[in-house]
Design a protein around this nucleic acid. Structure first.
Lengths: 232, 232
DNA sequence: CGGCATCCGGGAAGATACTG
DNA sequence: CAGTATCTTCCCGGATGCCG
């Protein structure tokens, strides 16, 4: 005999459809919160500040509008993200991580470092600007930057980022390029080709894939600060 | 009119069904590798050494046999896990992480630390022995253990673990309890109640949920070495 | 027992079209 | 621009059965 079948139609945005791991382990709970497809990548795209719905769509090629809507609702429901209305002129919305949401950054770091050793990793695939900036923070090798104190600017699409190397630390932020010692301009892929693919800057400039303005020697040195780990 | 339907029957075990993110970002590739449901928890259960198929099923309540089979195949396909045949007497197989697979540990650590701040986290849910041991390595507070040098044993089900605290570091391994200063025996949930739930050891012993053998003062001190972070 | 093959129901993800 | 509605495809989870 069959038990009564209970059809749940309660749409509770704070739950992943009751498909939880039911496990007290912290990692399991993290997966309950952000383990659904695309969720962590949405957070990655917001690591350098708020974005609008269509910015997110543009920076996450492959995500569909309804899935993005669902992920944003869920991330807001768990308290990792907030949705704000922009001031009157622009009647649009922006999505921004909460302080706790920003704390997901180390997860992106260790995941990236682990996957960089994967034999299947293809670094020539497309790359968002946020991913590239995060990769700098993740792969930075302080020993190779001893005594270096520099401000490196990036112009990618219509965004600008400033990477500051100072006292053996490497920080990145989405901000104006004032005071940059050198500026890289071009698509994220081209910059990644220079830093991670070993492509000479001259070659990239010759084929108009990348522009370097300012301290050229610094640009060259910068490309050597992010060694990739050996493959597993 | 309908287009011709192409039925793909190519079962390529090394791909997640061509549903990849196509993203050069390391974190995205990590999700392509181990982002499927249960994958990371299977690795978690193997962090302290090899296990058999049915051990994994027992320690991952809720996973179904076919999904476990799929995950093991995939983890083997990407090189994170190896499958070995046990010596003749036992005609069974064991699954063991590769050296690269073991390097997933920091991922479990940062995910757990992040999720511990979630207001939705319920620490009273069931817990595997591996999760508990990992939580010790993750939540250990060196400042609270200053000058402490101890070996704490655990007997959980038919497994034993030894946690060594020495020089401000905390390590855990699945091994015999020789030389332990104190031994906790009981289900993982009861030990978690003492360490994370603030339940007094006496109360847990009184209700026969937990047994403590050896240096009792050390047992009490041990339960205070793993403070939980504030909720977000 | 240990593990794989297969079928099925429900539901999440993906693509497209549409609306305010 | 910012989502919603709808439809299809495919993954997940449960059950069963096979085979060594």
């Amino acid at each position: 005999m069959k038990l009564v079948k209970i059809t749940k139609k309660t749409a509770d945005k704070s739950r992943p459809s009751a498909r939880t791991y039911d496990d007290a382990c912290g990692a399991a709970h993290a997966l309950d919160l952000i383990g659904e497809r695309w969720a962590l990548l949405v957070m990655r795209e917001l690591m350098f500040g708020p974005k609008r719905f269509s910015d997110l769509r543009a920076d996450l090629p492959g995500i569909s509008a309804n899935v993005l809507t669902q992920r944003l609702e869920r991330l807001e429901g768990i308290g990792a993200l907030s949705r704000r209305k922009l001031p009157p002129p622009a009647a649009s919305h922006v999505y921004e991580l909460t302080p706790w949401g920003y704390e997901i950054e180390p997860v992106l770091g260790v995941l990236g470092r682990w996957a960089a050793r994967s034999p299947l990793h293809d670094p020539t695939l497309p790359l968002s600007a946020a991913s590239l900036m995060l990769s700098f923070k993740t792969m930075f090798d302080a020993r190779k930057a001893e005594g270096l104190n520099a401000r490196i600017g990036f112009r990618i699409g219509d965004e600008t980022f400033l990477v500051q190397i100072h006292g053996g630390a490497c920080d990145a932020a989405r901000q104006a390029l004032e005071g940059a010692d050198v500026v890289f301009a071009g698509p994220a892929r081209a910059i990644a080709a220079a830093v991670y693919g070993g492509a000479p800057l001259e070659a990239l400039e010759a084929e108009k894939a990348l522009w370097v303005e300012g301290d050229r020697a610094l640009a060259e040195r910068f490309t050597g600060l992010f060694p990739l780990p050996p493959k597993a």
